[in-house]
Protein backbone atom coordinates (compact mmCIF):
# COMPACT_ATOMS: atom_id res chain seq x y z
CA UNK A 1 0.00 0.00 0.00
CA UNK A 2 1.24 3.48 -0.87
CA UNK A 3 2.00 6.03 1.84
CA UNK A 4 -1.05 8.11 0.89
CA UNK A 5 -3.82 6.79 -1.32
CA UNK A 6 -6.83 8.64 -2.66
CA UNK A 7 -9.21 6.62 -4.78
CA UNK A 8 -12.31 7.86 -6.59
CA UNK A 9 -12.89 10.69 -4.14
CA UNK A 10 -16.20 12.52 -4.61
CA UNK A 11 -17.48 15.55 -2.72
CA UNK A 12 -20.56 17.64 -3.53
CA UNK A 13 -21.46 21.11 -2.32
CA UNK A 14 -25.19 21.15 -2.88
CA UNK A 15 -25.67 19.94 -6.43
CA UNK A 16 -22.18 21.00 -7.51
CA UNK A 17 -19.56 18.27 -7.78
CA UNK A 18 -16.54 20.03 -6.27
CA UNK A 19 -14.43 16.86 -6.37
CA UNK A 20 -15.42 14.39 -9.06
CA UNK A 21 -13.61 11.07 -8.84
CA UNK A 22 -10.08 12.16 -7.88
CA UNK A 23 -7.44 9.41 -7.50
CA UNK A 24 -3.73 9.62 -6.79
CA UNK A 25 -1.04 8.15 -4.57
CA UNK A 26 1.84 9.85 -2.79
CA UNK A 27 5.08 8.10 -1.89
CA UNK A 28 6.91 8.61 1.37
CA UNK A 29 9.47 11.41 1.22
CA UNK A 30 8.27 13.11 -1.94
CA UNK A 31 6.93 16.58 -2.57
CA UNK A 32 3.64 16.00 -4.26
CA UNK A 33 1.95 18.95 -5.93
CA UNK A 34 -1.73 19.53 -6.44
CA UNK A 35 -1.99 22.15 -9.12
CA UNK A 36 -5.00 23.83 -10.62
CA UNK A 37 -6.84 27.11 -11.06
CA UNK A 38 -8.85 28.68 -8.23
CA UNK A 39 -12.03 26.74 -7.54
CA UNK A 40 -10.76 23.56 -9.22
CA UNK A 41 -11.33 21.45 -6.11
CA UNK A 42 -7.74 21.36 -4.80
CA UNK A 43 -8.51 22.56 -1.28
CA UNK A 44 -11.58 20.35 -0.94
CA UNK A 45 -9.49 17.35 -1.99
CA UNK A 46 -6.85 17.95 0.67
CA UNK A 47 -9.49 18.75 3.30
CA UNK A 48 -11.01 15.29 2.74
CA UNK A 49 -7.52 13.86 3.12
CA UNK A 50 -6.94 15.83 6.35
CA UNK A 51 -10.25 14.80 7.89
CA UNK A 52 -11.53 18.39 7.96
CA UNK A 53 -14.32 17.47 5.55
CA UNK A 54 -16.33 14.28 5.12
CA UNK A 55 -16.24 12.77 1.64
CA UNK A 56 -19.39 11.67 -0.15
CA UNK A 57 -17.74 8.56 -1.57
CA UNK A 58 -14.36 7.06 -2.42
CA UNK A 59 -11.49 5.74 -0.34
CA UNK A 60 -8.74 7.72 1.43
CA UNK A 61 -5.83 6.20 3.32
CA UNK A 62 -3.05 8.26 4.92
CA UNK A 63 -0.26 6.08 6.35
CA UNK A 64 -2.93 3.37 6.56
CA UNK A 65 -5.33 5.58 8.53
CA UNK A 66 -8.77 6.66 7.37
CA UNK A 67 -9.12 10.42 8.05
CA UNK A 68 -12.77 10.06 9.05
CA UNK A 69 -12.46 6.98 11.22
CA UNK A 70 -8.99 7.59 12.71
CA UNK A 71 -9.05 11.39 12.82
CA UNK A 72 -7.46 11.74 16.27
CA UNK A 73 -4.57 9.39 15.45
CA UNK A 74 -4.02 11.00 12.06
CA UNK A 75 -3.76 14.50 13.53
CA UNK A 76 -0.73 13.35 15.54
CA UNK A 77 1.21 12.65 12.33
CA UNK A 78 -0.24 15.28 10.02
CA UNK A 79 0.87 18.90 9.97
CA UNK A 80 -1.44 21.27 8.18
CA UNK A 81 -0.81 24.82 7.07
CA UNK A 82 -4.09 26.41 6.10
CA UNK A 83 -4.77 29.01 3.52
CA UNK A 84 -5.46 32.34 5.28
CA UNK A 85 -5.43 31.32 8.90
CA UNK A 86 -4.27 33.94 11.38
CA UNK A 87 -3.48 34.09 15.09
CA UNK A 88 -4.56 36.51 17.82
CA UNK A 89 -2.78 39.85 17.28
CA UNK A 90 -1.11 39.92 20.68
CA UNK A 91 0.06 36.29 20.75
CA UNK A 92 3.87 36.13 20.59
CA UNK A 93 5.83 33.81 18.32
CA UNK A 94 7.34 31.76 21.15
CA UNK A 95 4.03 31.48 22.98
CA UNK A 96 2.20 30.30 19.87
CA UNK A 97 4.76 27.53 19.31
CA UNK A 98 4.79 26.45 22.97
CA UNK A 99 0.99 26.34 22.99
CA UNK A 100 0.67 24.30 19.81
CA UNK A 101 3.52 22.00 20.87
CA UNK A 102 1.51 21.13 24.00
CA UNK A 103 -1.24 19.64 21.79
CA UNK A 104 0.99 16.82 20.52
CA UNK A 105 2.33 13.64 22.11
CA UNK A 106 5.81 13.99 20.61
CA UNK A 107 6.33 17.65 19.73
CA UNK A 108 9.37 19.05 17.95
CA UNK A 109 12.01 21.04 19.84
CA UNK A 110 10.41 24.49 19.55
CA UNK A 111 13.71 26.37 20.01
CA UNK A 112 15.31 24.54 17.11
CA UNK A 113 12.20 24.96 15.00
CA UNK A 114 12.14 28.71 15.61
CA UNK A 115 15.81 28.95 14.64
CA UNK A 116 15.48 26.82 11.52
CA UNK A 117 12.60 28.95 10.30
CA UNK A 118 14.60 32.13 10.80
CA UNK A 119 12.34 33.45 13.55
CA UNK A 120 15.01 33.32 16.28
CA UNK A 121 15.02 37.07 16.84
CA UNK A 122 11.23 37.27 16.80
CA UNK A 123 10.42 35.00 19.72
CA UNK A 124 8.82 37.82 21.72
CA UNK A 125 7.22 39.60 18.76
CA UNK A 126 3.41 39.63 18.68
CA UNK A 127 1.75 38.12 15.62
CA UNK A 128 0.39 41.48 14.39
CA UNK A 129 3.92 42.96 14.27
CA UNK A 130 5.32 40.24 11.97
CA UNK A 131 5.73 40.81 8.23
CA UNK A 132 3.67 38.73 5.81
CA UNK A 133 6.62 36.42 5.19
CA UNK A 134 7.28 35.99 8.91
CA UNK A 135 3.61 35.23 9.59
CA UNK A 136 3.75 32.63 6.85
CA UNK A 137 6.90 31.07 8.35
CA UNK A 138 5.23 30.95 11.75
CA UNK A 139 2.29 29.23 10.13
CA UNK A 140 4.66 26.66 8.64
CA UNK A 141 6.34 26.27 12.03
CA UNK A 142 2.96 25.54 13.62
CA UNK A 143 2.30 22.91 10.95
CA UNK A 144 5.66 21.28 11.84
CA UNK A 145 5.58 21.63 15.62
CA UNK A 146 3.95 18.22 16.12
CA UNK A 147 6.85 16.47 14.35
CA UNK A 148 4.56 15.31 11.53
CA UNK A 149 5.35 12.59 8.98
CA UNK A 150 3.28 14.47 6.42
CA UNK A 151 2.85 18.22 5.94
CA UNK A 152 0.05 19.64 3.82
CA UNK A 153 0.81 23.18 2.70
CA UNK A 154 -2.02 25.10 1.03
CA UNK A 155 -1.28 28.18 -1.11
CA UNK A 156 1.93 28.66 0.77
CA UNK A 157 3.36 31.68 -1.01
CA UNK A 158 0.25 33.60 -2.01
CA UNK A 159 0.71 37.23 -1.08
CA UNK A 160 4.47 36.97 -0.45
CA UNK A 161 7.06 39.12 -2.20
CA UNK A 162 9.49 37.37 -4.59
CA UNK A 163 12.35 37.14 -2.05
CA UNK A 164 10.08 35.73 0.65
CA UNK A 165 8.72 33.20 -1.86
CA UNK A 166 12.20 31.97 -2.76
CA UNK A 167 13.14 31.73 0.93
CA UNK A 168 9.98 29.73 1.58
CA UNK A 169 10.82 27.35 -1.25
CA UNK A 170 14.30 26.71 0.22
CA UNK A 171 12.63 26.04 3.53
CA UNK A 172 10.23 23.48 2.04
CA UNK A 173 13.16 21.63 0.50
CA UNK A 174 14.88 21.55 3.91
CA UNK A 175 11.72 20.15 5.47
CA UNK A 176 11.54 17.42 2.87
CA UNK A 177 15.21 16.64 3.38
CA UNK A 178 14.45 16.08 7.06
CA UNK A 179 12.16 13.22 5.99
CA UNK A 180 8.72 14.82 5.92
CA UNK A 181 6.44 13.95 3.02
CA UNK A 182 4.89 17.11 1.60
CA UNK A 183 1.65 17.76 -0.21
CA UNK A 184 1.79 21.18 -1.78
CA UNK A 185 -1.40 22.83 -3.02
CA UNK A 186 -0.70 25.67 -5.38
CA UNK A 187 -1.89 27.59 -8.38
CA UNK A 188 1.60 28.84 -9.17
CA UNK A 189 3.41 27.10 -12.03
CA UNK A 190 6.89 28.21 -11.07
CA UNK A 191 6.39 26.93 -7.55
CA UNK A 192 5.20 23.52 -8.76
CA UNK A 193 8.02 23.29 -11.31
CA UNK A 194 10.67 24.19 -8.77
CA UNK A 195 9.53 22.06 -5.83
CA UNK A 196 7.42 19.09 -6.84
CA UNK A 197 8.64 15.58 -7.59
CA UNK A 198 5.25 14.73 -9.03
CA UNK A 199 2.10 16.68 -9.75
CA UNK A 200 -1.60 16.09 -10.03
CA UNK A 201 -3.20 18.70 -12.27
CA UNK A 202 -6.80 19.20 -11.15
CA UNK A 203 -9.42 21.00 -13.19
CA UNK A 204 -13.18 21.14 -12.50
CA UNK A 205 -12.88 18.50 -9.80
CA UNK A 206 -11.04 15.94 -11.92
CA UNK A 207 -7.40 14.89 -12.25
CA UNK A 208 -6.46 15.80 -15.82
CA UNK A 209 -2.81 14.75 -15.54
CA UNK A 210 -0.54 13.02 -13.06
CA UNK A 211 3.17 13.14 -13.82
CA UNK A 212 6.54 14.70 -13.04
CA UNK A 213 6.89 18.37 -14.03
CA UNK A 214 9.23 17.33 -16.87
CA UNK A 215 6.82 14.62 -17.97
CA UNK A 216 3.96 17.07 -18.09
CA UNK A 217 5.99 19.51 -20.13
CA UNK A 218 6.99 16.77 -22.56
CA UNK A 219 3.35 15.84 -23.07
CA UNK A 220 2.59 19.30 -24.32
CA UNK A 221 5.07 18.58 -27.12
CA UNK A 222 8.70 19.49 -27.68
CA UNK A 223 7.84 22.59 -29.63
CA UNK A 224 10.30 25.46 -29.37
CA UNK A 225 10.42 29.03 -30.51
CA UNK A 226 13.51 30.96 -31.58
CA UNK A 227 13.29 34.76 -31.72
CA UNK A 228 15.89 37.11 -33.15
CA UNK A 229 16.49 40.27 -35.15
CA UNK A 230 18.35 39.48 -38.41
CA UNK A 231 21.18 41.87 -39.43
CA UNK A 232 20.16 41.64 -43.13
CA UNK A 233 16.92 40.80 -44.95
CA UNK A 234 16.43 37.27 -46.32
CA UNK A 235 13.60 35.12 -47.68
CA UNK A 236 11.49 33.00 -45.31
CA UNK A 237 12.11 30.01 -47.58
CA UNK A 238 15.71 29.92 -46.40
CA UNK A 239 14.47 28.72 -43.01
CA UNK A 240 11.27 26.97 -44.09
CA UNK A 241 13.36 24.54 -46.15
CA UNK A 242 14.87 23.18 -42.93
CA UNK A 243 13.18 19.98 -41.70
CA UNK A 244 13.22 21.31 -38.10
CA UNK A 245 11.26 24.48 -38.92
CA UNK A 246 7.46 24.49 -38.95
CA UNK A 247 6.60 28.16 -39.18
CA UNK A 248 8.22 31.54 -39.67
CA UNK A 249 6.52 34.79 -38.68
CA UNK A 250 7.75 38.37 -38.74
CA UNK A 251 6.67 41.22 -36.52
CA UNK A 252 8.50 44.38 -37.49
CA UNK A 253 12.25 43.70 -37.43
CA UNK A 254 11.72 40.64 -35.25
CA UNK A 255 11.48 37.03 -36.52
CA UNK A 256 9.89 34.13 -34.71
CA UNK A 257 10.75 30.63 -35.90
CA UNK A 258 8.71 27.75 -34.52
CA UNK A 259 9.79 24.17 -34.82
CA UNK A 260 11.03 20.97 -33.20
CA UNK A 261 14.16 18.97 -32.56
CA UNK A 262 17.47 20.75 -32.73
CA UNK A 263 15.86 23.96 -33.93
CA UNK A 264 18.36 26.45 -32.57
CA UNK A 265 21.39 24.83 -34.14
CA UNK A 266 19.66 24.37 -37.49
CA UNK A 267 18.59 28.02 -37.62
CA UNK A 268 21.88 29.52 -36.49
CA UNK A 269 24.00 27.45 -38.87
CA UNK A 270 21.90 28.47 -41.89
CA UNK A 271 22.13 32.11 -40.82
CA UNK A 272 25.90 31.84 -40.35
CA UNK A 273 26.37 30.28 -43.81
CA UNK A 274 24.50 33.29 -45.26
CA UNK A 275 26.50 35.80 -43.19
CA UNK A 276 23.45 36.99 -41.27
CA UNK A 277 23.92 37.89 -37.63
CA UNK A 278 21.01 37.07 -35.31
CA UNK A 279 20.76 39.84 -32.73
CA UNK A 280 18.80 39.49 -29.45
CA UNK A 281 18.58 35.75 -29.99
CA UNK A 282 16.26 33.96 -27.56
CA UNK A 283 15.00 30.39 -27.32
CA UNK A 284 11.67 29.68 -25.65
CA UNK A 285 11.02 26.17 -24.41
CA UNK A 286 7.56 24.88 -23.69
CA UNK A 287 6.90 25.61 -20.03
CA UNK A 288 4.70 23.90 -17.51
CA UNK A 289 2.38 26.82 -18.12
CA UNK A 290 2.02 25.82 -21.79
CA UNK A 291 1.51 22.24 -20.67
CA UNK A 292 -1.30 23.37 -18.41
CA UNK A 293 -3.01 25.24 -21.22
CA UNK A 294 -2.63 22.21 -23.49
CA UNK A 295 -4.15 19.92 -20.82
CA UNK A 296 -7.04 22.05 -19.68
CA UNK A 297 -7.60 24.42 -22.57
CA UNK A 298 -7.32 27.46 -20.33
CA UNK A 299 -4.60 29.52 -18.66
CA UNK A 300 -3.82 28.93 -15.00
CA UNK A 301 -4.12 32.47 -13.74
CA UNK A 302 -7.70 33.30 -14.51
Amino acid sequence: MAFIEVEDLVKHYGSERAVDGVSFTVDEGEIFGILGPNGAGKTTTVECLEGLRTRDSGRVSVTGLDPERDGAELKQVLGIQLQESRLPDRLRVGEALDLYASFYKRPADTDRLIESLGLGGKRKTPFAKLSGGQQQRLSIALALVGNPRIAVLDELTTGLDPQARRDTWDLIEQVRDSGVTIILVTHFMDEAERLCDRLAVIDSGKVVALDTPAGLTARAGDEQRVRFRPSAPFADALLLDLPEVAEVTRTGPQMVVTGRGNLLQAVTSVLARNHIVAADLRVEQVSLEDAFVALTGKPLDN
Binding site: E50, L52, K75, L82, Y100, F103, Y104, G146
Partner: peptide
Protein backbone atom coordinates in the same frame (compact mmCIF):
# COMPACT_ATOMS: atom_id res chain seq x y z
CA UNK B 1 -10.14 26.16 12.11
CA UNK B 2 -6.40 25.96 12.69
CA UNK B 3 -7.04 24.21 16.00
CA UNK B 4 -9.21 21.68 14.19
CA UNK B 5 -6.08 20.59 12.32
CA UNK B 6 -4.35 19.68 15.61
CA UNK B 7 -5.13 16.87 18.06
CA UNK B 8 -6.70 19.53 20.33
Amino acid sequence: RRMRTTPM
